[in-house]
Design a binder for these strands. Structure first.
Length: 641
RNA sequence: GCUGUCAUAGCUCAGGGGUAGAGCACUUCAUUGGUAAUGAAGAGGUCCUGGGUUCAAUUCCCAGUGACAGCACCA
């Protein structure tokens, strides 16, 4: 006698085992038509599943956000069926729902190419039109393995073999086709609807491991209806327009060329933007008790051997040799060992701790070619690096202090939201388990004190210690680690850093590796996308253009530009022989935040007209007023009164 | 690094076995026009690099390099 509690609190009792479909039908024909699946005590299930005991039940309809995952998962199954119908002999592997859509990985000799997608998509629509029911079956393990092996599906057979003993093995049929699957699914292929589209092909390693064979992956996007699909496709186009590589070119900020792969040529405007960011960070850090240092680029391998990098990181390091000498130098991939060298000069006292040592450190890392991405992932970059030498007792307070600084900075740059990941001990690591226990515990308690909530990123810590990662999202939806703080008990030991304790003994400092924006290159890339090139005034590389209407005003325009420039603003003067419409258009397209228009009238009255980017109207100011206004608006957030 | 796609003017791109085009940008001339494109003329290319096929290759084939997408990587 199962009693079913519905979301509105009402309870319905049934004489015996009852399926979701039957319950929906009992409630009403409308619901029976709309219900795609159900949640029983919070677990999503097929409508055809029987409920035998009391349960809380919620139906999932198309209106429900939860329908998206079902549609995407079902679409993946239909994709696999379509592919096997069109390309017999292709082996299936796995095909999950993902953010915005789904994919399926196939194994075949010839990988799929973009040209293959239209035919596959057409076949999918055919299968959906067939509206075949999804039928769930429970199979015996051996039976399932034998079946898939007989079909030549060795990947599926492997998957089943690796399922934990005792796990129920379920198969879902749709018409003639079937797949190993945990479910749940909707009622039939027709429930998928038309709001989907195959997007791209790609290679992907079997089980995500580069030592395994490469599979051919097909990505699709799927939504509840065509309108949602169109909206998503439109959003993708919009995101593409914000791409920092496009804007960087259009605004003449930087370029990269073949002879220096992974390194940036910063153009005047891009470098101005860079320096604006740098100056701001420098001021924030100085105010936050950091002292800035500068350390060498090229250092003898002996130091890297001591630090452990030579052993663990060598394949990512650029090496330099000189014919005259029998030495091998390496370009630094990071700054930490060098800061320890500074710490070690002289005898340090506990009184000096915490010592916060900052460097805008230029680092080189040989990143795999496929990893490079615009200015976001490069081989030569500059970190806003700092190392805090402190006692174990100071870890929590320093972490709290750092998180506060980071939040302040992100807010000033316009990022209201970011995610935090806690990465704990990796498989390959330095230091004993006891040391790791302490480091992880210290960082966790610091998170609590700082009120930081995080998701766990197991096994992703640095080899010397656990870390917090602060992640920002770019225009295309990719996540990038920017800020980080990492607890390190290992390097001070390896490089023999110590300080004098109050008892006149010697002790090892703990090192906190930390960065707020991570690297200037990556962070500026994200800034560009976040603002779509329309930077707030304090960051904008060109803050105003003075544009003339007639050449009679050239002299006065120069005076205006001079006055703005003297007030510290980045100003350009446009006295070119063009109509004012053309000038407005040109500078608007270049995202110049302010255009000061000067004609005969202004020259006579000593005024300036201001047209703001995106605005259609103008404001009139006196010259002194105009200077004061822009100067105030261009003040970086940390310098505002 | 792996799989796939791509590489033509400064930029965005079209084209095609007989050494090449558009728009924008650039230069010059005319124009002095009041808030998102004034007009005209001109200049600009080893069609990524190296090999092969061919009477002939920028075009077809192979390799390399680089870019892009995804995967792997990101201490």
């Amino acid at each position: 006698m199962p009693a079913i509690t519905l979301p509105d609190g009402s309870v319905r009792s049934f004489p015996g085992a009852v399926t979701g479909a039957e319950i929906a039908a009992a409630i009403g024909p409308g619901l029976a038509r709309a219900a795609l699946a159900m949640e029983v005590d919070g677990v999503a299930m097929d409508l055809s599943r029987e409920i035998t005991a009391d349960a809380r039940l919620r139906f999932i309809t198309r209106k429900d956000e939860a329908a998206l995952e079902l549609i995407r998962h079902d679409a993946a199954h239909v994709l696999a069926e379509a592919v096997q119908e069109l390309y017999p002999g292709t082996q299936v592997t796995i095909g999950p729902a993902i953010e915005n859509g789904f994919y399926y990985d196939f194994y075949r000799n010839e990988p799929f190419r973009p040209d293959d997608l239209p035919a596959i998509e057409a076949k999918m629509r055919e299968i959906i039109a067939r509206d075949a029911k999804f039928v769930r079956e429970v199979w015996e393990r051996e039976e399932a393995i034998e079946f898939f092996e007989a079909q030549g599906e060795r990947f599926k057979a492997e998957l089943i073999r690796d399922l934990p003993a005792g796990e129920t093995i379920t198969i879902y049929r749709q018409g003639e086709w079937l797949d190993l699957c945990r479910g749940p699914h909707m009622r039939s292929t027709g429930d998928i609807g038309n709001g989907f589209k195959l997007m791209k092909t790609a290679g992907a390693y079997w089980r995500g491991d580069a030592r395994n064979p490469m599979l051919s992956r097909i990505y699709g996007t799927a939504w509840r209806d065509n309108k949602e699909l169109e909206a998503y496709l439109h959003q993708l186009e919009e995101a593409e327009r914000r791409d920092h590589r496009k804007i960087g070119k259009a605004m003449d900020l930087f370029h990269i060329q073949e002879e220096a792969v992974g390194s940036i040529f910063w153009h005047p405007k891009g470098w101005k933007l860079y320096r604006n960011v740098e100056a701001y960070i420098r001021r924030r850090q100085e105010a936050g008790g950091y002292e800035e240092v500068r350390t060498p680029q090229l250092v003898d391998r002996r130091l890297w051997e001591l630090s452990g990098h030579w052993e663990k990181y060598r394949k990512n390091m650029f090496i330099a040799e000189v014919a005259e000498e029998d030495t091998m130098l390496a370009l630094k991939p990071m700054n930490c060992p060098f800061h320890v060298q500074i710490f070690k000069q002289g005898l340090r006292s506990y009184r000096e701790l915490p010592m916060r040592m900052a460097e805008f450190g230029a680092c080189h890392r040989y990143e795999p070619s496929g990893a490079l991405h615009g200015i976001m992932r490069v081989r030569a970059f500059t970190q806003d690096d700092a190392h805090i030498f402190c006692t174990e007792d100071q870890i929590a307070a320093e972490t709290v202090r750092f998180v506060a600084l980071l939040e302040r900075v992100y807010k000033d740059f316009g990022f209201e939201s970011f995610t935090v990941k806690f990465s704990d001990r990796p498989e390959i690591r330095a230091g004993s388990d006891e040391v790791w226990d302490r480091a992880e515990a210290a960082l966790k308690s610091a998170c609590e004190k700082a009120g930081v909530s995080y998701t766990l990123n197991p096994g992703e810590g640095a080899f010397y210690g656990p870390k917090l990662e602060f992640v920002l999202r770019d225009a295309i939806g990719r996540d990038w680690q920017c800020g980080t703080i990492q607890v390190d008990f290992v390097l001070p030991e390896r490089l023999d850093a110590e300080y004098v304790t109050p008892e006149s003994g010697r002790a090892r400092p703990v090192m906190l590796h930390r960065a707020i924006i991570g690297s200037f290159e990556r962070f500026i890339g994200i800034l560009i996308e976040n603002y779509a090139g329309r930077f707030p005034l304090w960051l904008a590389p060109v803050q105003a253009v003075v544009a003339t209407i007639v050449s009679d005003a050239d002299g006065y325009a120069a005076e205006v530009a001079q006055a703005l420039s003297a007030a510290g603003l980045a100003v350009e003067l446009d006295v070119s022989n063009q109509k004012i419409q053309a000038k407005i258009r040109e500078h608007s397209l270049a995202h110049v935040p302010n255009i000061r228009v000067v004609g005969r009238k202004e020259a006579e009255t000593g005024q300036v007209a201001l047209r703001r980017l995106g605005g259609a109207s103008q404001e009139m100011h006196s010259l002194a007023g105009a200077v004061a206004l822009l100067k105030a608006e261009a003040t970086p957030p940390d310098l505002r009164p």
